[in-house]
Design a binder for these strands. Sequence first.
RNA 1: GCGGCCAUAGCUCAGUUGGUUAGAGCACAAGAUUGUGGAUCUUGGGGUCGCGGGUUCAAAUCCCGUUGGCCGCCCCA
Length: 443
Amino acid sequence: MAQFQTLPGFREFYPEETARRNHLFRLWRQAAVAANFLEYDGPVLEPLELYKAKSGEEIEQQLFSFEDKGGRAVSLRPEMTPTLCRMVGERAGAMRRPIKWFNIGEHYRYERAQKGRLRAFFQFNADLLGEAGPEAEVELIALLISCIAATGLTERDFFIRLSDRNLWFFYLQAIGYTEAQVPDVLGTIDRLEKQGDDAFKFFEEKHGPLAPEKRAEIASFTKINSLAALEERLAPVTAAGGAAAEALAARLADWRTLLGGLEAMGYGAFIQVDLGVVRGLAYYTGFVFEAFDRSGEFRAIAGGGRYNNLVKKLGGPDLPAAGFAIGDVVITEMLKSKNLLPEIVSAPDIFCIIGGPAERKVALADIRELRAAGYRVEYPLKDAGFGKQFKQADQNRARLAIIYGGDELARGAVKMKLLADATEREIRRDHLLQAVGELLGKE
RNA sequence: GCGGCCAUAGCUCAGUUGGUUAGAGCACAAGAUUGUGGAUCUUGGGGUCGCGGGUUCAAAUCCCGUUGGCCGCCCCA
């Protein structure tokens, strides 16, 4: 039995789990369609180069990559974004803006499996391309929140941490950091939460020591947690004038648009300004956001941001873009811990109870009709006593039993019994579909 | 890639200082019940004790290795 185990980090989905997964996907799909995002799909296997081009050579050790029989270097997809960028890039010239697309698919990463992180997982991806303004982020973050809220989680359970790599960029330049230093300051900030003061070594190893007041200046900026605090902090900087100050002032206007839009949609309670978030790999170019549970018990539920350079980098036109992904693993763990996993009943509408071999022939003919009419119909494959068959009908949680007994059939009739209240009536077989429709309600 | 804990039936778990043929509950199946129900009772199927090696007269139990799981570090697109 244990001779063949599943590969590490891969899951099997038994029917109950598959039903739950499909339910989650259905909620996500409904939310995306309601926001008029279009569903697309792409290959599971891609040229290895596609991912190296996006993320660099080092990414290969985290990929399910191999050489195919034609000698091509290939990889299972670790994410959807490069495929999306290629697809949109190919036809961007012919596409109406904004481009709003989503996908639900399985992704593969060769990493050590842990709580909330597996080697094969499903992701909901949504992206909005062709709009550079913060109105795009309003759409995306609104969709993100509605996708998570559709599962039953509320603003008491999760929130969105919102930050902005552009703001950091303009701010750091305004207070004197060079363009070359900025990425390493951002790298430091990303480490600050976990490593504390040690995080500054990341910057200092390349650019020399930072005075304590410089450290404090950065650290305190990561603590900004509201638009008001941000405006207050930046007031003296923007007042000083210059290119960086002007860029900062324009960026503050974007912030007002974004937060105002989300507020107007009623999502204000979900948003937490948190400039300590800059997100790992550095292709994000503007707003970045992550969804977390409020208890802090789980990994990030979802993450995303703006990536204006990526479509061009992957060979397409210069197209502004932003997007996010929600994984299935963390949110499922969270729903489980909060008892929000739905009990999905998978039951037939009708269970046929069959008297014997002669009655079976009649029943089989009707079963075909009922199934063709869209009913979900089950029956015992082997002859058995009536008591046993009713038991099976119960265990199947069927709503209606149709009884094929010799006496009734001799009269050209069958009996129907609603299992819930045990009411029984005899129906002429030539009125079968009509009677079933009345008893079960029209499909 | 590194470290800690764990692995007995489909599931949850017992299994004494190493000692005959490894158990329970749930689940599954058959019967009680040959035309009427999720109950009850009886019975049954199901195990390479993760896998491989070692110690021993004797290993689920002790030792080594290995695979897998969980947890943490690195990473997290």
